[in-house]
Nucleic acid binder design. Sequence first.
DNA 1: TTTTGAGTTGTTCGA
DNA 2: GTCGAACAACTCAAA
Length: 484
Amino acid sequence: MAEAPPIVWFRLDLRVADNPALAAACERGGPVIPVYIHSPDEERPWEPGAASRWWLHQSLSALGTQLERLGAKLVIRRGPTLETLLDLIEESGARGVLWNRRYEPAVIRRDTQIKSSLEGRGIDAHSFNGSLLIEPWEVQTKQGAPYQVFTPYWRSCLARGFSAEHLSAPKRFVVPRKQVNSLLLDELELEPKIDWAAGMRAAWAPGEDGATKRLEAFLETAVDNYSEGRNLPAEPGSSRISPHLHFGEISVRTVWHRLAEIAKHRRADSKLKSIDTFRAELGWREFAHHLLYHFPETTDRPLRRAFENLPWEKNDAHLRAWQRGRTGFPIVDAGMRELWTTGWMHNRVRMIVASFLTKDLLIPWLEGAKWFWDTLVDADLASNTLGWQWTAGCGADAAPYFRVFNPTSQGLKFDPDGEYVRKWIPEIAALDDESIHDPWNVAPLLQKDVGIDLKQDYVRPLVDHANARQKALALYQEYVAGRK
DNA sequence: TTTTGAGTTGTTCGA
DNA sequence: GTCGAACAACTCAAA
């Protein structure tokens, strides 16, 4: 007598190892029906952007292959999720639905509804923690409030400790008696119609195997020098696992576990410090989810409301120039072009371009957040919201408003030999290491020497940074720090 | 309830 | 060239 199989509803957990919902479904050794349901409308206004859709396609394809190796077939459907699940249950005779939780406000609303609808019909519905070291509601201040400052939050998490549990991948699936129909992955039309994804294909290997390889490469080559190396955008000093973590191709618990193993064999203080610095980055990811869960409105409104009064600029030409990497500030333009080409930008440069948009151009942080949302392969609502509000100074634990990044000095400091800028702005590659970060102050003579005519080859700076800085400081002081 | 210490990533100015 | 202070005030979190 065959047991009714459970449905495993895949979402942002596109892996088979350490996947709590999948592991629970496989526990009894019977058949399992793995399902992906495409329903972007239910996530509005933060449905996946173009770069995320490209990644999702690759990742689903990889998951399909992975499941096939284990003897199961990923069922792909489209449409309203609840209806689709009910259809699937009827078609397959499934007894319940298991999934790993997500924390975006619209998704929480939907999932809550789905859970109660299923349970109301007598169908098992069970959700798991597959994405975080610690659930957002599991940590609170001694007063019982959510944390709003990273350091005490993270200290409290570390004191509490994390579960060391690691669930291995199922060995083999039993094929369900009744097969259900699946769409072809291509029918979801996740990939762009015009193929602009060559740069992404070159830069990334989406999927569980790619995620594991990326992590291991980082642990082997860069983690020991992470504290310093992570600041240099020309170096492979950061982990680049953010998109893999976002799509759940690797679990953060697995990463945590591997770090602990590595730390055991390290004696040097600098190496241990680097490992802790990297752990704190995972902590920021946790913190972002904590904030998103407790302050869901911050996806669209600043946590510190005073910032809504600030007279932001509406300047489409400036916004467009920023988006396309044509601001006239090399480190900013290099970052924006890296983003456009590869779907990713080095974190140091993210701060520089975000500071430039919100403080030099005085364009609302939400415009920047939306552009990142559409173009980043690691676009994550929790991290994106936290990052933008942090830089703009309007969020939890924000940078003081007077902290304005100087694009030229940041370039000189963190890209001292101009390698990063040269890679992304070849038209000024011939300039020397110093002038390349400040090309408009290069003497006309020098331009001739190296065969460059900036007026032809590059763009004039949109603003004078020193003036823009003064203007921003005055406005921030008047509208935010002052009494208005 | 009140007090106290502290807060991811910067820049500029003047000694 | 290097270094420390100022930038301002607020809010958080714990004692």
